[in-house]
């Protein structure tokens, strides 16, 4: 274990370009997926959290069920759509970073939406009324509600990030673990471990954890600073 830690540090300071590329791929793909998913999750979470409409309960139950989707199943489903024989095969997406993004978005969208909706529904009921009576239009009510709920929403985004940065099923099945292209930290770990280089795998795992911590601390720091 200590040896792995030492190797992780050595790898980081050695300036191994491939390692940096792999780490950057993991970080970039996860961030892009979370950003795209949240563009859908925030409005939907706002709608579920603050408005009433028919079939709202069913929608919530459906989202909760989606949260439990195994990553491999998501990988499999997307694979069947974008493989050459699939209905979207002509797009040539299989084994590209975009394919990983699609899988990751499907993975984190229900989680982020559920957390956003429960965060916003716990916000004070007087908030929307206060905004409306002061003359805010619907878009402004949305903006201000997200702002007032930003701490809890941040937790939702970070949970979504945590779910996708650490998963291996989607990245492996849809990305294909292609060197200098779609290899991420998790697929690299799987590869190194199966090759028998357990220590390198562990070192990569430590780097993955460090990235996750760093992202959490940075975003929390930004929010604290705003207050």
């Amino acid at each position: 274990m200590l040896g792995a830690f030492g190797q992780a540090v050595r790898l980081l300071v050695s300036g191994d370009r491939e390692l940096y590329f792999i780490a950057w791929t993991s970080l970039r793909l996860s961030l892009v997926s979370v950003v795209i998913a949240s563009a859908l999750s925030l409005p939907l979470g706002f709608l579920i959290g603050l408005k009433s409409f028919p079939a709202k309960k069913q929608l919530i139950a459906f989202l909760n069920a989606l949260m439990a989707l195994p990553t491999v199943v998501v990988g499999l489903l997307v694979y069947s759509f974008i493989s050459r024989a699939g209905p979207l095969g002509f797009l040539g997406l299989l084994f590209t970073p975009a394919a990983i993004n699609i899988g990751q978005i499907i993975l984190c969208f229900p989680l982020i939406t559920s957390m956003v909706y429960s965060a916003l529904s716990r916000l004070d009921r007087r908030l929307p009324e206060t905004l409306i009576t002061l003359g805010a239009r619907p878009s402004e009510v949305f903006r201000m509600t997200i702002w007032e709920g930003r701490i809890a929403i941040l937790s939702a985004l970070l949970s979504g990030f945590g779910r996708v940065v650490g998963e291996v099923g989607v990245a492996m099945m849809l990305g294909g673990n292609i060197r200098w292209y779609t290899r991420t930290l998790t697929t690299a770990i799987a590869l190194e471990t199966s090759k028998g280089d357990f220590e390198l795998g562990l070192a990569l795992g430590i780097i993955l954890m460090a990235i996750a911590f760093l992202v959490n601390f940075t975003l929390h720091g930004v929010i604290k600073h705003e207050r």
Partner: peptide
Amino acid sequence: RQESVLVHQDPYLFDGSVYGNVSYGLKVR
């Protein structure tokens, strides 16, 4: 909406300064 405004019992104040709160309606206008 333009001509009236309601003050709640135990009003909700936005996170931030007094200025941010009082100027809010002016900002959206």
